[in-house]
Design a protein around this nucleic acid. Structure first.
Length: 820
RNA sequence: GCCGUGGUGGUGGAACUGGUAGACACGCUAGAUUUAGGAUCUAGUCUCCUCUGGAGGUGCAGGUUCGAGUCCUGUCCGCGGCACCA
């Protein structure tokens, strides 16, 4: 018998596939298309993480199955190569990010190829390729042209010592990761993308796609739509009104004070002389906190009085204006009306600072009792009642009276009144915020705009794209907080494309998210230099039929890329509003202790070592066998030997020619074959690959026990195995004398009749407790089963001397005698 | 804190719409084979007991049901995301 040499065999077939372009996707083929997409990796210096192949193997199995089912499959791969780690490495070593990125991509490519994924490598690209980011810049200019890009002052994390802006990740416990110095917020003008104008569509169109429910829910919750009203409050000391968003306009009569976020534009204008000092220091303090800390419900709320008063528009009462950092500038209008009697946060705040609490909602007696609350306490403002109630104390002299109404009707009536008086209107608010698209960093796509004193912001003309990243000496941001690009004067200084006068380039670059927001479109036409992708090709391949990625990308990346695709659709440039027909997600691969893999924990598994020792097929099978695909799984070095043994037993089974015979399979073997075809086929569609592998093991255990193995059964087995262990399958196939690849062999169908059992084991229970079991023909009648099961000694023992009140019979499953 | 998700033997996990909990694999125990093995094969392996039988058992506490890992209420813990990591 020949020994299986995984190193030789795998290399051989990888070379074969590459040479023959076995996995090439054909534009406009007559076959039905299938676009199968996995998230492309960021090529980090550490090399491929064992988590990447989890997603790639699963969809590779799917892609291979689809090819065998006769589809024209597009299964591409690329690299998301702009990003902080490469830039930080450049800062540390002075090596250009281009150099290190190229090295990393080469390493990743080699690693990915060593795993035998059926990618169409002719379509590979990186987001850092000028030929690619030319079109990222072009799409940005489209957004700009359509008014979806604008500048706004946004707070960023600012390290006072390093004088640079920091990513959230670089802020550790409120301090700079590098120098441990103090981090504060600093307002910087940033380019923003109006994703909020697509909020409604981003929710609604989820109805048309097959995303896992949990993914849809995350998207919907992230967008966070809420209906309510915008209300204007006038302020005695300034001319400008304060705009407030509330989901409970019906509680206006209970608004006894108002709170502005410390970043609110009117804070300094309305602060009185006496309060100036406290307000200023409070604003400074809260700039140091993160939003997360500020909204922590457990944390004690803090705030200071501004000295000014606003007028409650429903009752003309003077209410004090405070500032407090639990009100965020990024949500709603950055200002709230506080209704302490019916909002717990406002209630705690009012109690702490001795502010008025006015009850305007009488709790329903029963509900209050359930909560252990006395109605009179709520009425007296001693206890907060944030639930449903009946309006009281809610009328004024200006024709508004909502007393006695429930919350819903009171809301509508109040909003109508506000609209009539011109002091408010119905409004929908989203938690979703516009996308901060600027980075003061080097390693990103330059934003292709030029600022001219005469013409303002002017787009770089299309023929001048891409705006290439210039070579710089230093990668640190400048001391002013601008990107390193600002220091390259001969790059920054240019002329205005419109009037020709001296002008300055935008020095901000795009966030890492930009490149990944449209890469699935570029795979369709990766080498096109005159358009981001040919319209006809897009028409053939889009939408993506199945997109798998990490659960950690189900909010941001998914939302951003859906937004860009919808925008391009509205421009008439792509054929579908939704880019992805189906989206699934996989769980992370953790270290052996069940913790995240990291160098510091010293629990990183290097895929190269696993492939070296066991081979790619074992690695692939193990990653599928490790656990349910959508859940996190801990790596287990011991567990992999089980797969190694499985494949070795298969090798023995397939190569022991003395046992293989041209006979017809026995009934049991045939049944198991059809059960296996069924299970493996269905499990692949549901990505339940762990149980698909188990089933193949069960079948292997059976076949290995036979003295005579029918050849046709083995041939079928090999077809089922081939998407999982493609190198192994090709090798056996060739040993059997076949000269062509298995890639386009026909996938199997199962016969339901042959797959079904003739006899079943039925559990016999007495009062729900298992007392025995019988084996009986499938679909037997109740009487037969009842009769047979009562013959069991142990069952009879429990039944005799009792009356059977009820018999429950579940066909082919169990019978339960309920006795007294 | 908010949104999402999960908790089953010594371990990874299986269990269709409520119907025999522990498939498959690792590990462990015993045996066979081998000069040897971290190789291979065979058998056993949820716990406890008064052991041809019985009791308990799916994070914890309750509930619904003839019957609950699965449904309901409450609670604890782990994991992912929280907008400048990708």
């Amino acid at each position: 018998m020949i020994e299986y040499d995984h190193k030789k065999v795998e290399k051989k077939w990888q070379a074969y596939w590459e040479k023959n372009k076995t996995f090439q996707a054909v534009d406009f083929s007559d076959k039905e298309k299938f676009y199968c997409l996995v998230e492309f990796p960021y090529p980090s210096g550490d090399g491929l993480h064992v988590g990447h192949p989890r997603s790639y193997t699963a969809l590779d199995i799917l892609a291979r199955k689809r090819r065998m089912e006769g589809f024209n499959v597009l299964f591409p791969m690329g690299f998301d190569s702009f990003g902080l780690p490469s830039e930080n490495y450049a800062i540390k070593t002075g090596i250009h990010p281009n150099v290190i990125t190229k090295e990393n991509i080469d390493k990743y490519t080699k690693q990915l190829k060593s795993l035998g994924f059926s990618f169409d490598w002719d379509r590979v690209f990186s987001t850092t390729d000028p030929g690619y980011y030319k079109w990222t810049q072009w799409i940005f200019l489209k957004l700009y042209e359509k008014g979806l890009a604008y500048k706004q002052k946004i707070p960023i994390n600012w390290c006072i010592d390093c004088k640079i802006g920091l990513a959230n990740e670089e802020v550790v416990d409120g301090c700079c990761e590098r120098c441990d110095g103090e981090v504060t917020k600093r307002l910087i003008e940033q380019w923003m993308l109006k994703i909020t104008s697509y909020a409604e569509k981003l929710i609604q169109d989820l109805d048309d796609v097959q995303f896992l429910d949990k993914i849809k829910t995350q998207q919907v919750n992230w967008i966070g739509r809420s209906e309510g009203a915008e209300v204007k409050f006038s302020v005695d000391s300034v001319t400008k009104d304060i705009l407030v968003f509330t989901t409970r306009p019906d509680t206006l009569f209970g608004a006894t004070f108002m709170i502005l976020s410390p970043e609110h534009e009117l804070v300094s204008a309305i602060t009185t002389k006496e309060q100036e000092a406290v307000v200023e220091s409070y604003v400074k303090e809260s700039a140091k906190k993160s939003d997360l800390e500020r909204t922590e419900l457990e944390m004690e709320k803090t705030g200071v009085f501004t000295g000014s008063y606003a007028i409650n528009p429903v009752n003309n009462e003077k209410i004090p204006i405070w500032i407090a950092d639990y009100v965020l500038i990024s949500y709603g209008t950055g200002a709230i009306m506080a209704v302490p009697a019916h909002d717990t946060r406002d209630f705690n705040f009012a109690q702490k600072y001795g502010l008025k609490i006015q009850c305007i909602n009488r709790p329903v007696q029963e509900l209050a009792e359930n909560e252990g609350i006395l109605v009179e306490d709520v009425l007296a403002g001693k206890v907060c009642w944030p639930h449903e109630g009946q309006c009281i104390n809610s009328s004024n002299d200006a024709d508004l009276n909502i007393n006695g109404l429930n919350v819903e009707t009171a809301k509508t009536k109040t909003t109508q009144w506000l609209e009539e008086k011109g002091i408010g209107k119905e409004a929908i608010n989203y938690k979703l915020r516009d996308w901060v698209f600027s980075r003061q960093r080097y390693w990103g796509e330059p934003i292709p705009l030029i600022h001219c004193h005469e013409c303002g912001w002017v787009p770089v003309p299309e023929q001048d794209l891409p705006v290439l990243l210039p070579t710089v000496e230093k990668y640190e941001p400048t001391e002013t907080g601008e990107s390193p690009l600002a220091a390259i004067l001969d790059w920054v200084n240019t002329s205005c494309p419109e009037c020709g006068r001296d002008a300055r380039r935008e020095t901000d670059t795009m966030p890492n998210w930009a490149g990944s927001s449209w890469y699935f479109l570029r795979y369709i036409d990766p080498h096109n230099d005159s358009v981001f992708a040919d319209g006809k090709k897009l028409g053939y391949w889009m939408p993506v039929d199945w997109y798998n990625g990490g659960m950690e990308h189900t909010t941001l990346h998914l939302l951003y890329s859906r937004f860009w695709n919808k925008f391009l659709y509205d421009c008439g440039l792509v054929p579908n509003s939704e880019p992805y027909l189906k989206r699934t997600s996989h769980g992370m691969v953790l270290g052996e202790g069940g913790e995240k893999m990291s160098k510091s924990r010293d629990n990183v598994i290097n895929p190269d070592e696993v492939v070296e020792r066991y081979g790619a097929d074992v690695f692939r099978l193990y990653e599928m066998f490790i656990g349910p695909f959508d859940q996190a799984a801990a790596w287990d070095t011991k567990g992999i030997v089980g797969i190694d043994r499985f494949l070795r037993r298969l090798w023995i089974l397939f190569t022991s020619s003395e046992k293989i015979a041209e006979t017809h399979p026995e009934k049991e073997t045939l049944r198991l074959l059809h059960q296996t075809i069924k299970k493996v086929s269905e499990d692949i569609e549901k990505l339940r690959l762990n149980t698909a592998v188990s089933q193949m093991m069960i079948f292997q255990n059976h076949l290995s026990d036979l003295n005579e193995v029918p050849e046709e059964v083995l041939q079928n087995y090999l077809i089922l195995l081939s998407p999982f262990a493609p190198h192994f399958a090709e090798e056996i196939n060739q040993l059997w004398g076949n000269q062509v690849t298995m890639t386009y062999k026909e996938w199997l169908r199962y016969d339901e009749k042959l797959a079904s059992e003739e006899e079943v084991e039925i559990a016999v229970q007495v009062n729900g407790k298992l007392r025995g079991s019988i084996i009986i023909a499938k679909d037997s009648k109740e009487e037969t089963v009842s009769e047979e099961s009562r013959k069991i000694k142990n069952v009879n023992k429990h039944i005799e001397n009792h009356t059977i009140i009820k018999t429950i019979y579940i066909k082919n499953r169990l019978i339960n005698f309920v006795i007294r």
